[in-house]
């Protein structure tokens, strides 16, 4: 039976110390990969302790931008080539230089949209909130959520308490 346990900390250094403790295997059966940190602010240094965790947003950005580039180039040239009654002004039908301007804009437009979609997907947004989400996390407290087996819950609670946890909450995972 797996469980998620949330500990709320007001002191950020203590929270970091908990993560460090788990990293040093102070709780049996729990590794750093089981930890989720909930924080009111962005903590690049905590993420360092959590180790490499990937984010796919740059891939989304790159593919969106590439799509914009290729689609833009082809779309504009094709539209011009099939619309011959165009104002010429002595200029060729397919004007590469002026199309470059629009391709540039389309690259950014699709890049931005794709980044945003990647963000919504990658950040696991639009899910129902649970008991482990607390308003205080958005105020000034750090929450550490750890996924543990039932038997390892107590050592974890002890670790939390050692580092002056304010509140501990459990939530059973439905299998």
């Amino acid at each position: 039976m797996k469980k998620r346990i949330l500990g709320l900390f007001s002191d950020f250094d203590q929270a970091i110390a908990v993560v460090v403790g788990i990293r040093q295997y102070e709780v049996p059966g729990v590794t750093v990969d089981d930890i989720t940190i909930k924080s009111p602010i962005e903590h690049p240094e905590i993420e360092e302790i959590l180790g490499e965790r990937s984010s796919h947003v740059p891939k989304f950005a790159l593919s969106g931008a590439l799509f914009g580039l290729i689609f833009g180039a082809f779309f504009l040239a094709a539209a011009q080539a099939n619309f011959l009654v165009q104002p010429q002004g002595g200029k060729p039908v397919i004007t590469i230089t002026s199309n470059l301007v629009l391709i540039y804009e389309m690259l950014i437009l699709f890049g931005v949209l794709s980044t945003f979609i990647g963000f919504l997907i990658g950040g696991r947004f639009m899910r129902k909130r649970t008991a482990l989400d607390d308003e205080k996390i958005n105020l000034d407290q750090v929450g550490i959520v750890v996924e543990v087996e039932e038997g390892n819950a107590d050592p974890l609670r002890d670790l939390f308490r050692k580092h002056k946890v304010l509140e501990i909450r459990d939530r059973e995972l439905e299998e």
Binding site: K38, E47, R53, S55, R124, R127, R129, N138
Partner: peptide, 17 residues
């Protein structure tokens, strides 16, 4: 707020985005 929970996954993606 599309279900912002403030967990590290969201912050990580947020920072990159």
């Amino acid at each position: 707020s599309v279900g912002w929970r403030g967990d590290d996954r969201q912050w990580r993606n947020f920072r990159k985005t």
